[in-house]
Design a protein around this nucleic acid. Structure first.
Lengths: 211, 211, 211, 211
DNA sequence: TATGAATGAGTGTTCATTCAT
DNA sequence: AATGAATGAACACTCATTCAT
């Protein structure tokens, strides 16, 4: 009922673009507060102090706005990748750094990571132009990286960039989900840190791909 | 409304252990019929013909009984692992076979696989004695396997069985989830089969671990 | 929030049959108060003072309970038919009386009539055992009546009871809907009463069917 | 968002009459596309590319514009009547043809028919000058027809044109609604076509009115 | 005269859990 | 020990109408 925590003074009428951004920003905030499972449209509109109908003027469904937030998350992840690659140019270490950076990302933005995984569920069908775009950019980045490493003789010639792209992504997402799920168990019972585990995995992965 | 299709004659009073087993069996049936998302306690008690209250006498929550069913699922997966190991004794191929068998399993029992992934969600807290037990057995199997391979000079000495156990499991689960999520996309757009992708991944993983 | 207007003292737990009846009765009351278009489940449960979930334990949808109320309405209409037939035995007048009695009925229970028409919409699919049963009984009554009249030489041999059943019903329902819609217009502008109009119609219909 | 598919070049400022006609035409298009239940003002203004507020400058409500579209529909039906009468001059067959032509009409323009029925709902109160006008013309046509048939000794002297007008209209509309509602049931269960049923009805009606 | 962003009270439906009997 | 009726907060989504600009 109040938007005092958001912008002052209260503006009743915003341009389409502004309102859309405001709603995405609000959704982003709610997502970080509540996580994916507890994310509801009600919370978003209550937070902003706008009517339910207003939301549905700008987004056709809950998944639609989540895809929008997810696109932002993917773009951030993409940045992590680009920065990692740059800081270790021209060796197998840059490949390792890229994969490890997705771990850093999942620590920095756990709800975003959760969202990325959530949005991959096959039953969802949202419009998702921005989401598909962001997804594609990450894939292109990754495939390009593998190709460069192959060209430089760093990664084996028989590793397909297309396949490597998908399995690096898929297995990294998976292992990070696993790390998150088993976090308490691992540290308390087996005294293994998440980082140790991931590094051991990436060691093997890198070792399996490099020349 | 009737349990005639389940056991006859109906026994009103079962021992605590029997009742628990009966409920777990019913939950198992419902899970296979409906999948995780459409699994409800109502369906379980309707199927068995017992009262809702009875259910909550034996299990403290929905997740509690799902953990029991999940324990059964993990035991089946364990069997897949054991059979795979036996059929390729004494070479790196047995390691490959084990990892690939989890893919076979996810094709044979998609609802079980879905459940295993579901139960790993960190926010859940269930009692899960049986679940932890089953989990542990798989870990022990896997750690034992890696150790044997190391002892036989098949896997590199510097691969930790403990860590390998976790990252093989985590990354395999993850990549299979990914395969499932992107199934349509991969086959239609990139013309990559799930099996091709998984095999390429396992190739790298094996190559990274073997001597 | 209060059921004081319904039964006292408040009983929290009723038998399935009692609760079902109570809900049907409440729906019946709301229907008469609000009409079909403004009939909502919220009003029913508020009126009774029970939870929304309680309603959905007993009826699978809004249309489901409306079908139940409609069955009651059809049974009442059936009674009107039977009484009319009995009071004019053995002449064409009994046929006339039956058709006219549906007019009486629509005056006595306008919301019921509205409901009967509403439930005939083809897009609806409710369980409707009771509704189908009641529908069938009216059809059987009508077909039986026409057959008797034919046997007694009162109605022409070439009138099919099956077809007559349907067209008498369909045209009567339609003309009564028309009467209701145009009520004000007819009386104010053309100075024709609904009764005059209906009687003229039935005159022609009877004249068309009789020997 | 664009009106390019409607008129080019776009005229921003139309006369009141032009704007009204433009809106009615748009509503007509949407009605035929979507049917009565899915007809919304949003769709109309989106299609035209004008603002919501503009709509409410020209029509006081949704029902108001629907009444205008309905007027057009009634005028078309009127044409069907006129054509039928001309093709069977001077016999009872022309009366039959008129009534049957309303069936043809309901097959040719099901959404219009649906609309005509919808607009007869008594709770509606729209301005409806055009609608009343169109209604009146049909009535005059029908009354004129009956009178002519009486003058020619084809229809009985004691049939009131005023009343016959209303009951023919009301019963035909009703029976056609009934046919539509029970379409599936009749054809699958009783193996009666809509046409058979309607013809049987018209047979009786004609037989009841003719000399 | 035209705009179009904003409204908000609905609307049907779900289901894990409780507790009086 | 077993019952099962009752709960009620949640939830996603709709659309005719208004009014400040």
């Amino acid at each position: 009922m109040t938007n005092s925590h958001f912008m002052s003074p209260t503006k009743k009428h915003l341009s389409v673009k502004e309102r859309r951004q405001q709603l995405i920003l609000a959704a982003d905030t709610i997502l970080k507060q509540e996580g994916v499972v507890d994310f509801t449209i009600d919370k978003v509109v209550d937070y902003l102090g706008v009517a339910k109908g207003t939301f549905y003027k700008y987004f056709k469904s809950k998944d639609d706005i989540l895809a929008e937030v997810c696109a932002k998350a993917l773009n951030q992840l993409h940045n992590y990748f680009k920065l990692s690659e740059r800081s270790h140019p021209g060796s197998i270490e840059s490949t390792r750094a890229i994969i490890l950076s997705s771990y850093e990302y999942s620590k920095d933005y756990p709800e975003y990571f959760e969202l990325i995984v959530h949005m991959e569920r096959p039953e969802l069908d949202y419009d998702a132009t921005a989401h598909k775009e962001a997804s594609m950019q990450i894939q292109n980045f990754f495939m390009g990286h593998i190709q460069k490493q192959k060209d430089n003789g760093i990664i084996r010639k028989d590793v397909s960039p297309l396949l490597a792209n998908y399995f690096c992504w898929g297995s990294s997402m998976g292992i990070m989900q696993f790390l998150d799920a088993k976090k308490a168990f691992l540290e308390e019972t087996v005294a293994v840190t998440q980082r140790e585990l991931l590094e051991a995995f990436v060691d093997v992965l890198i070792h399996g791909m490099k020349t």
